[in-house]
Structure formats: structure tokens, C-alpha cells
């Protein structure tokens, strides 16, 4: 029974990674850049909830909503002032700027909230589920996280496939100039992608800190990196790939912690990544783009 319980925890943690990975993968797919500040947007989202609930005494649902709005605006503003002016320049310049934005957000949080960990009150009010005569208990956080992950992937997939802005995203991701010739507002589409990615970061922050209730200015960095790894794992640019990569990563991490060593868990996760990339450099669902001239 404990194996099943570990597995479910792994899937839950993996769903958080998947939601983070979706932000990475969409931004990469469309703007062709790695937004290394993505993890820190998660942290800003979590602090927003922390402040809204702790100081303004708002109900959790309202706090989460505010956090989504704050992160969405933050994502769009970061794109507008830090990344857009660099579009068309060397990819390294954009990458370094993203790292700069990451440190900037961490240090602003450090100034405002200090370096000590805060204890985060869970936003999930769902009761734990008791199965198999109480031998298997699934927490409300776990349930909500897994359901959120599934819903988000389905909604995003439908959005990209069925809506006009979704089709515009696919067009921009393949060929910005050709998309422009179709009348697609490329800058607007990229801004929309950042908005969606950052809103997802807010949700990830709420879920992550509810399951692991400690919050500091560095809370976002490790999950951010894991989300990035999950995106690469699944095949960067692919929405179902991010989901699969995230869940695999979470399951491997939790099972390694349970059966091998909790110190080595991260090392094992990254070792698996290296092996996957050696065998299939584009990730699990990544496709090779054959260009026909």
C-alpha cells in the first residue's frame, strides 16, 4: 500500500512540475527563449497569496485569484520591458537577461519579506480521502493538484487546437514573419503566451506551497529548474510532452526518495534526464523538424 501512496504523491508533485513545465514550454515554443525567471514568478505568486491571506485576511479562493492576476501582469510586464527590446538579438543576451530578471525578483522578495522561511497556509480546503479501510490516505492537496494538472492540460490543448489565438500561437512558433503576413499580431501573441505561462506559474505556486508549506524568496528556483527539466524531458515545445515529463519527474523523485535515498533523489532525477537526452535528444515527445527547401 505504501508504494501506491508514494506513486500518488509522485504524480501530485509531478503535476506541479508539469504546470511549471507548461509555462516554460509554451514560452520556448513561441518566443524561442528560455524564461529562467519563470520559477521566481511562482515565488511571487506564492507570496501574493501569503500576503492576501495573512495580512488582508482574504479567503483562499480570492487570494489565489489575486495571485493569478498579479503573476499574469508581472509576466506581461517582464516580457515587455526585459525581453521584447532584445527580440532578434543574440539568444544568449536574452538568456542572460532572464537570469537577471530571476535575481531581481528574488532580491525584491528578499527586501520585502526577508530571508527567513514563512509558513504557508494551504489554500486547499478539500478533506483527505481515505481508501482501503484507512490504509491509503490521499490528502486534499494531492487530489486538487492532480485534478488541476489534468484540467489545465486539457484546456490548453483545446485552446491551442480550437481557438484563433491558439492557431496564431502555432503559426508564430513556426514562422514569425509568415504569421505576420497572415495578419497575426506577433508581439501580441507572444505577450499572450507570457500571460498564460505566468498565470500557470501562479497556480503552480499555490499548489506547491500548499503541499510543501514553507515559503522563502528562493522557493521558486528549484521547482523552476525541475519544471524546465520536465519540459526538456518531455520534448520542449510540446504540451503533452510537458505533462508526461512533469509526472515522470515527480514519480522518479518521490520513489527515489522513498526507496533509494532522499539525498540522492535529485541526482537520480538529473541522471535520468541525461540518459533520456542521450537516447533521444529531442525529449520523449520532441519531434525533429525536417525543413524542406
Amino acid at each position: 500500500m505504501s508504494f501506491i501512496s508514494y506513486l500518488i504523491n509522485g504524480i501530485s508533485l509531478g503535476s506541479v512540475y508539469a504546470i511549471i513545465a507548461l509555462g516554460y514550454t509554451m514560452v520556448y515554443g513561441i518566443a524561442k527563449m528560455l524564461n529562467f525567471a519563470h520559477g521566481d514568478v511562482i515565488m511571487v505568486g506564492a507570496f501574493t497569496i501569503f500576503t492576501a491571506m495573512g495580512q488582508a485576511n482574504l479567503p483562499p479562493a480570492v487570494a489565489v485569484l489575486i495571485s493569478i492576476v498579479v503573476c499574469t501582469v508581472l509576466g506581461v510586464v517582464i516580457e515587455r520591458i526585459a525581453y521584447r527590446p532584445l527580440r532578434g538579438t543574440a539568444p544568449l543576451a536574452v538568456l542572460i537577461t532572464a537570469i537577471g530578471v530571476s535575481y531581481f525578483l528574488q532580491n525584491v522578495a528578499l527586501l520585502r519579506f526577508g530571508a527567513n522561511s514563512k509558513s504557508f497556509t494551504s489554500v486547499v480546503g478539500v478533506k483527505p480521502l481515505s481508501l482501503a479501510n484507512g490504509e491509503l490516505i490521499i490528502t486534499g492537496e494531492t487530489l486538487v493538484t492532480i485534478i488541476s494538472g489534468v484540467v489545465i492540460v486539457i484546456v490548453l490543448t483545446l485552446f491551442v487546437r480550437k481557438t484563433k489565438p491558439g492557431q496564431a500561437m502555432l503559426a508564430v512558433s513556426e514562422d514569425k514573419d509568415a504569421a505576420k503576413l497572415m495578419g497575426v499580431n506577433v508581439n501580441g501573441t507572444i505577450a499572450l503566451t507570457f500571460a498564460i505561462g505566468s498565470a500557470l506559474a501562479a497556480i503552480a505556486g499555490a499548489l506547491l506551497c500548499s503541499a510543501y508549506p514553507s515559503l522563502s524568496p528562493y522557493t521558486g528556483s528549484m521547482p523552476g529548474i525541475k519544471g524546465f527539466v520536465a519540459a526538456v524531458f518531455g520534448g520542449i515545445g510540446s504540451i503533452p510532452g510537458a505533462m508526461i515529463g512533469g509526472i515522470l519527474l515527480g514519480v522518479i523523485e518521490i520513489l527515489s526518495k522513498a526507496y533509494i535515498s532522499s539525498q540522492l533523489a535529485d541526482a537520480i532525477v538529473f541522471a535520468v534526464l541525461i540518459i533520456v537526452l542521450l537516447v533521444k535528444p529531442t525529449g520523449i515527445l520532441g519531434r525533429n523538424i525536417n525543413e524542406k527547401v
Binding site: 484563433k164 492557431q167 496564431a168 502555432l170 503559426a171 513556426e174 514562422d175 514573419d177 509568415a178 504569421a179 503576413l181 497572415m182 495578419g183 497575426v184 523538424i289 525543413e291 524542406k292 527547401v293
Partner: peptide, 20 residues
């Protein structure tokens, strides 16, 4: 060089032509 969207179907390409 045509610049069609190679990862999209013929139908999706045509629909994008009517994007506006």
C-alpha cells in the same frame, strides 16, 4: 520559399490565411 506552416495541416494553413 512559400513559407507554409509545415507542422499544420493544409486546412489549418488556409484558415490562417483568413485570420483577419
Amino acid at each position: 520559399g512559400r513559407r507554409v506552416f509545415s507542422q499544420l495541416t493544409v486546412y489549418q494553413n488556409l484558415k490562417l490565411g483568413a485570420y483577419t
